[in-house]
Design a protein around this nucleic acid. Sequence first.
DNA 1: TTAAATTTTTAGGCAAGACTAAACAATTTT
DNA 2: AAAATTGTTTAGTCTTGCCTAAAAATTTAA
Lengths: 236, 236
Amino acid sequence: MPTVSVENYLKAILHLEEGEEGRVSTTAIAEKVGATPASASAMMSRLGDRGWVEHERYYGVSLTEKGQRIAMEILRRHRLWERFLVDHLGFEWDQVHEIAEELEHVDSRELVNRLDAFLGFPKLDPHGDAIPGPNGRFRSVAARTLLAEAPRNLDLVVVGVVDGGDAFLRHLGVLGIELGSRLTVMERHSFDGSLHVRFADVDELQLLAPSVCARLWVDQSNPAPVIVFPENDPPS
Amino acid sequence: MPTVSVENYLKAILHLEEGEEGRVSTTAIAEKVGATPASASAMMSRLGDRGWVEHERYYGVSLTEKGQRIAMEILRRHRLWERFLVDHLGFEWDQVHEIAEELEHVDSRELVNRLDAFLGFPKLDPHGDAIPGPNGRFRSVAARTLLAEAPRNLDLVVVGVVDGGDAFLRHLGVLGIELGSRLTVMERHSFDGSLHVRFADVDELQLLAPSVCARLWVDQSNPAPVIVFPENDPPS
DNA sequence: TTAAATTTTTAGGCAAGACTAAACAATTTT
DNA sequence: AAAATTGTTTAGTCTTGCCTAAAAATTTAA
Ligand SMILES: [Mn+2]
Ligand SMILES: [Mn+2]
Ligand SMILES: [Mn+2]
Ligand SMILES: [Mn+2]
């Protein structure tokens, strides 16, 4: 029965662990939860006592099996609630994070599973992030690339955002980019990595700053497959 | 920006104030929130400092205008979430209280108003209790009577329960009683106030204990009105 | 109108979680 | 290798909210 604060810390550590190798630093955690390093340090020893993190003094922490299970559960709730807010209450994707940040702490196994069913067992949240299943593992590991690293001349589709703060999401709105937007990389400028892209529904080329390209997940957009009818029936 | 604990205390005081005259006792509040009188006493002076209750030492408290506004907002959230849980997630009415007790503390004006709209601006929660509107006042003051005090030989309909703990709600399930059940009081037994009633959908008379009759709100069931067509047009 | 019983408040502690300032350890620079 | 910088922990303090035990006020009973 972790408190709200403990749940926020565990989720922060989970976020910081993915991608980065090894242990997570106290200062990074403090920054993520909006507290001082001193407060985070105190919390780490409490989390260590309860067996939710492994704490090597002066070298950071990593989640234990138990801690990870809890963190994944919070993440699951967060992302399911975000889906609910967008799909059923008509919120925009840049308005739901803060509210989900509170809803995720409502503790009822039954509630979250019924919500999951009500939403149709979604695999992705409104920002394109995978939603953990009731077992605490992700339902699908989608193959995705950062737009910044995508090859040219491919039909791409935006499938997610990296660490999407509300300001960034609103900026995407200004640029006319949303989940599902289709585009092609025409030119990559080696000076700063900015890209000239062409959107499927726009005529002119558009320039995207590297700060944007590094935060967009894209996938190859499956073109409507060309179905070739065989001239003869295949052998059964 | 009250804390969860403060919100629970304010709501408890609101509940205790209705019906009872004058101030609410520290001990009653303590019992309602599940704390000791000493803890409640300490909380009362904190609430007094913030201007949410009027505290007359040794004589109890009453909500101020401000305190009442906050408490009504919590009550609104609680009952809206109960509606959501029953109407959309398929919970039974005896399973939702505890979960709503947590959801009510999620603090977002926008969220609660959109939820209200999503639910179709309901007037009553699943237990028949009125849901406060965004202005903090009840939307409708339904005319209702306790079954224990209802006259005989009237077509009645169950419109609500008084202070419905889960145990009582499950007992109603055993008796086959739910919101909307139609019944008529056939006999009132002066010994202990128990009633013989006839349910609209059952043949035999059924005996209801006073503990049940005192906790059921009933209203006269409007029989499908007999429409009398005038022989002549009324004078305009 | 005292005395007994009940209710309420106060006193003294404790745990969680936050902060600032200071000490300490690790890492980088010089 | 020593010095400076950076990151982490410790020390000391605060607030909220809870507890038990004891004191004080109020209510009830004798
Ligand atoms: Mn949160
Ligand atoms: Mn998200
Ligand atoms: Mn509550
Ligand atoms: Mn209710």
